[in-house]
Structure formats: structure tokens, C-alpha cells
Design a protein around this nucleic acid. Structure first.
Lengths: 350, 350
DNA sequence: AATATCACTGACATCGTTGTCAGGGAGTTT
DNA sequence: AAACTCCCTGACAACGATGTCAGTGATATT
């Protein structure tokens, strides 16, 4: 008869071995096992071999959290990453860059999506803190992040990404939203456009406001009266953007160029232009790169952000803080880049 | 004078409060604090108020891992997700679905990328196990996952995604690769094609082999001799695919249709077709959906997988196992879907 | 009035590991 | 030969929490 159990197929579920069991099997004290597992010096090679064999035969995996409880530095070798959505390729790329830097130091990454929900943000932060992450890289949607001040004082490094923190002083890594928008605007101006429509995301989003500001300021610098410039905001998805662009195109004095301040808005604009067969007549520059934008006809000119660089930099700052860097907090600005592909180089048509 | 310190800006870094400190401040025993924090019954409301106030004033966050050490069920409310790359939108969507199901139960998700590296796979699994994840959802690249057998016997639920496990019996959630390929092939056959080229990913990848098998079997069923059918494999990136397609198009007897078995291969094929101005003459069906595929001309017909469904199902199975489900392991097959957008409906041109 | 019941509270051991410290034995020095 | 190193090793307390259990009063029961 074999042992019966309610366990998984393949046999009785053996309990997870502890260090004590490894020690018993090897006939040594637990502290010696601890030394071998952690590669501490001053253990005889005979001892090392004996312990390793015992550990292997039991398939022993040390419990990092139990160790941490006692360990001096209290590091969990874990960090939390809070982004808009892990399904968003922008954050996916950023996440990858963070993971790369973290895993090089044996740090595992918790990733969560906050989905524009302030309550969710607080809940997720709390969940991370209860798991004692060594640091936090986060995008935020709450009005103020003052609730994080005690944690920051405790020495948990915080690096804000995409949006700067409010109500608290901490490192941040952001794209140059205003400058990128200005660049797009100047590009369209240089191609002769004077009637450029702005299509923006929810005005409650800080980066969206920055992009709008960059657009309007650049028009101002060029001496273009902003009074009659169509500025549509609070477009958060493709459908809304499509509708807004159609309305503009069908108006009595349609714009000769469009500047769309975000991914989905750009796509909505593309479909609207096509619906009116104007994709080769009305210029378009979008903020955020779009995959396969160069395979479309015309190719879509964009202001590309650099999510990889943002992730790298955020991770680099976080790790530096963990290593004891006490320099004043700073906002790092990652430059954006204009990629001309055709749609932004269309001239104004009468 | 304010207190000086080497800490973060804003004051001395106060130590993280423990339950004992909350208890001391509230003038009660630690166990009572524990009861209040965990919402256990039989605590007077006066006591609850006193403890809560003390906890709030110290900004107390319980240490989940310390609690776990003693807690009966030993659950960390944490799970590990191992995918090809978190930067890949396919896995991003899948990750999101897993996160959704997990967070509904207060479970946090570790996500890591294995990048086709078997050593990395083992290292990451080990890192997860040392952090005592409650379960693992994973794509694998090792030849055999027998090394996970002890863990499985210990009762840690494992759900394999994208590829079925080898050398071990566990739940799996996969796309119907062969059936999807057959569907694509039948579609092209029905549009009159007989000379269809197959362009596949690395043959070392199980799913790639499955897709090739589906293609060839469907041709067999249709009575098409597969001897002269061009089958090119081991194309892992856009550049290689582009080159392979150009070679086919320039050959003496070029195919009238292409079936590309993966994302990047499809894109390489598109650029190749365009380079020869054949995008409206040679049919194309790709495995994996491509973003904006409907905005291209022609639109790209694809066999779309359903990463969201895969993630949902994997999470659902994992949670069910955690809840004590002891039914035999099973491979769940998530259907693929043909999305006709134009490129696959081009007829054979002499 | 004595006893049983119940809600409430805290002392204590314990979870799996590591820091501290003391002790044993081999080799070196005087 | 005594004293001193130095290398190895393990007993023990402690990390921050929870499970167990016993004890206190107040209320209900006989």
C-alpha cells in the first residue's frame, strides 16, 4: 500500500522542508545550514558538501521572509511597480526596463494596474507596504500623495513616473510633455499650418494639461492667435476622439492640421480622417508612438516617448536611494522625439 | 532646533512601528491589537476605537510576512507569473486578466520575463518559491519541467500557459494552435490558393511546431501535395522573415499566398510584399493579431488568439486549486478566431 | 446564593530564519 | 608545556506577528 492523501497527483504532499529538517538530516546545527545556504565563510568543505547534499535531497528552498524578519538590513529584495495598466504597451516596456535593473540585483517586482482609480491606488500601495517592498515606483492618480509622507520618512524610496508627485517631495521621472507638444506644434507651423486643432485627453490628467500648455504656448510664440484655435479636451477613448474629429472636419472652417495628444485619440483621428477621405489632405501629428505607424498610408508622424528610458532611470534612482544616496530629490525629464512619417508633413490645402 | 538626521527630507526617519508599539500606545496587549487589525470578533467597541486610533496615529501597517509565518494556512496572498516578456502586448493583456482575478481576492502578482532563457526560468521560479508564492502561472522554455515536481507535490498549484508542461502533470491553458493554423489554411484554400507558403518561428518552440502541423495536416486533408509547398522555419524576427519572403517572391514559382505563424514574421512579410508592390496580389494570413491591422491597406487577415481569456482561465484554475479543487489536471484549450480584413481574401493571380 | 455561561483580554509559545556568543580543537608561539 | 591564536560549530534569543489557553468580570441560570 502506498500512502493515501488528498494531495496532488503523484503522491503524498510532503511538507515543505525547513532549515531544521535539513540540519537534522545532515546531522548538524541549523546555524551551520544557514551559513552554507548563505555562503558565509568559515565552514569546512566537508560540512558544506554534507549540508548541500541534505538540502538538495529534500529540495529545500529557504524562506526569504522568515530570514528577513531576523536579518539586519530588513530588505525583502522586492519592489512595487504601480502603473496605469500592465496591458498598456507603454507601461509594458517601462515595466520590462525596471525588471531588468531589478533582477540584476535579485530583486523581484510586484506590478499592479491602477486604472485611473484613486481608491485602487491607495489600496495597492497599502498592499505593497504590507509586503514590505524595499521601494516603490509609481504612477499616481490621487490629487495628493501626502499620504505617502510617513512611509517616505521611514526611508522607503519612492520614485514617481509619468506624473510628478503632489503634496510630497520625491524623485520623479517624466517625459517632457510640454516640450514635446511644442515640438509637434512647431513642426506643423513650419509646414505652413495656421489652423491647427488640438485634441486632448481628460483635463484632470496632469500630463494632458502639460501637453495642451505646450501646444498653446508654441502657438503664442509663433504669434498665432489662439482665440479661434479649436481645442477639444476630455477625449479618453477612440470613439470619442473619432466623433470629435468628424465634427471638426464637417464644420464650416475645418482645421488644416490636427495635433492629438494621446495614443487612442490619434487612432480615433486616423479613422475619422479616412472616413472623410482626408488622410492625405489634413496633417496629423500624434503624441505617443503607435505600433506599425510606419506601415500606414500615410505613415503617422508622432512625438515618441521613451518608456524604456523612463523605466531604466526610475529603477536606477530607486536602487541608488536604496544604496544610501541622500542627494536632494529631483525630477528627471526624459526627452521626447519627433518621428516624421508622412502625416505630419502634409501642407495646408486651401 | 529640529531633529537632525541623515534621513530623507522632511524630518527624522521614524522607525516602522510594530504591533507591540501600537499595543503600548493603546495600553493593551499585542493580541488585542492583532484582533482589531484582523477584524476578529469579541472585542469591545471601546477597545476597537482605542486601538484603531493608536494604529492610525503611528501609521501602522501590519507585516504580512511576519503574520504568515505563524498563521495557520501559511498563505502569502501572492502569486508568481512567468511570461515571455512583460513588454509583449500579448502577455501584457494576459497579465492584466490574471491581476484582475487575483486582486479581487487581495492577491498580489509578481511578474517576470524569461526571454527564452531556460536558466532564467529556473532562477525566477526559485526566486518566486523563496518568496513563498501561493501558486505559479507560467510559460516555460526548459525542455522538461520535472524540476517542479517536488513543489507540485507540496501542494503549490501550477498552471502552465501558452505551452503545455513536459515531464510533469499539471493544469495548462493554451491556444488551439493546430486548429487555428488549419483554419487559416482552409481559408486560403477556399479562396482558391494551392501554392501557399508557410513561414514559421523557431522550430524548437512547441507552439511553432503545432502551428506548422496544423497547416500541413489541413493541406493533406484537402489533398494538396505538400512536397512542393515552401515551408520556411526558424524565423524569429522581422528581418529574417522579410528576407525569407523576398526570396520566395523572387523565386521562379512564387507562392500565391502566405501563412505566417507569428506576429513579427507577419510584419516582416508585409514589408516584403510592399517592397515588391504585391500586397494586393499575394494573399496573407498571419497567426496572432496585430494592432492597427485593420487600418493597413489591405487590412491584415489574422488568426487571433485570446490572451485575456487565457489569463482569466489560468487564474480561475489556480484559485480553484487554492480553494481545494482536487479534480484531475486538465489542459484547457482556448479557441482562436479568424478575423478577415482583406489580405486573406485575395484570390490567386496567375 | 451558588454556579454556569459568555464576552472580553493578555501571557506565552511558536512560525523559519539569522545575529550573537561561547566553546572545542588544531596549530603556533614563547 | 603553557598560552595564544584561529577556524569551526552549535545553543540560544530574537525578528513581528498569530494560535492557544487561561483568567477576569458581568450576566444568566438553577
Amino acid at each position: 500500500m502506498t500512502t493515501m492523501s488528498a494531495g496532488s497527483p503523484g503522491g503524498a504532499p510532503r511538507a515543505r522542508p525547513t532549515m531544521r529538517q535539513v540540519a537534522a538530516l545532515a546531522g548538524v546545527g541549523t546555524k551551520t545550514v544557514s551559513r552554507v545556504i548563505n555562503g558565509e565563510p568559515n565552514v569546512s568543505s566537508a560540512m558544506i558538501a554534507k549540508v548541500k547534499q541534505a538540502a538538495d535531497s529534500l529540495d529545500y528552498q529557504p524562506d526569504l521572509h522568515a530570514g528577513n524578519l531576523r536579518r539586519a538590513d530588513g530588505r525583502t529584495k522586492t519592489l512595487g511597480l504601480l502603473v496605469g495598466s500592465v496591458a498598456n504597451p507603454f507601461y509594458g516596456t517601462l515595466h520590462r526596463a525596471v525588471e531588468e535593473a531589478a533582477s540584476a540585483r535579485g530583486i523581484a517586482v510586484f506590478a499592479s494596474s491602477l486604472d485611473d482609480d484613486p481608491d485602487r491606488e491607495q489600496g495597492l500601495v497599502s498592499a505593497f507596504l504590507q509586503r514590505r517592498v524595499d521601494g516603490l515606483i509609481l504612477t499616481t492618480v490621487t490629487k495628493s500623495q501626502a499620504y505617502l509622507a510617513p512611509e517616505l520618512r521611514r526611508g522607503t524610496p519612492l520614485v514617481f513616473i509619468d506624473r510628478e508627485p503632489a503634496g510630497i517631495e520625491a524623485d520623479a521621472v517624466v517625459s517632457d510633455n510640454a516640450a514635446g507638444s511644442a515640438l509637434a506644434t512647431r513642426h506643423l507651423l513650419e509646414h505652413g499650418h495656421r489652423r491647427i486643432a488640438y485634441l486632448g485627453d481628460l483635463d484632470s490628467i496632469q500630463t494632458a494639461r502639460e501637453r495642451r500648455r505646450g501646444f498653446l504656448e508654441e502657438l503664442g510664440r509663433a504669434g498665432v492667435a489662439t482665440r479661434d484655435i479649436p481645442v477639444v479636451v476630455d477625449l479618453h477613448d477612440e470613439v470619442a476622439a473619432n466623433r470629435a474629429v468628424l465634427a471638426l472636419l464637417d464644420s464650416t472652417d475645418p482645421p488644416t492640421a490636427l495635433f492629438t495628444s494621446q495614443n487612442l485619440v490619434t487612432i480615433g483621428a486616423i479613422t475619422a480622417l479616412r472616413a472623410r477621405a482626408l488622410q492625405n489632405r489634413v496633417a496629423l501629428v500624434g503624441f505617443d508612438d503607435i505600433s506599425l505607424a510606419d506601415l500606414l498610408t500615410p505613415g503617422i508622424t508622432v512625438i515618441a516617448q521613451n518608456p524604456q528610458r523612463i523605466g531604466e532611470l526610475a529603477a536606477e534612482r530607486l536602487l541608488a536611494r536604496l544604496d544610501g544616496d541622500r542627494t536632494p530629490t529631483h525630477s528627471y525629464v526624459v526627452p521626447t522625439e519627433l518621428i516624421a512619417r508622412g502625416s505630419g508633413e502634409i501642407g495646408p490645402h486651401a
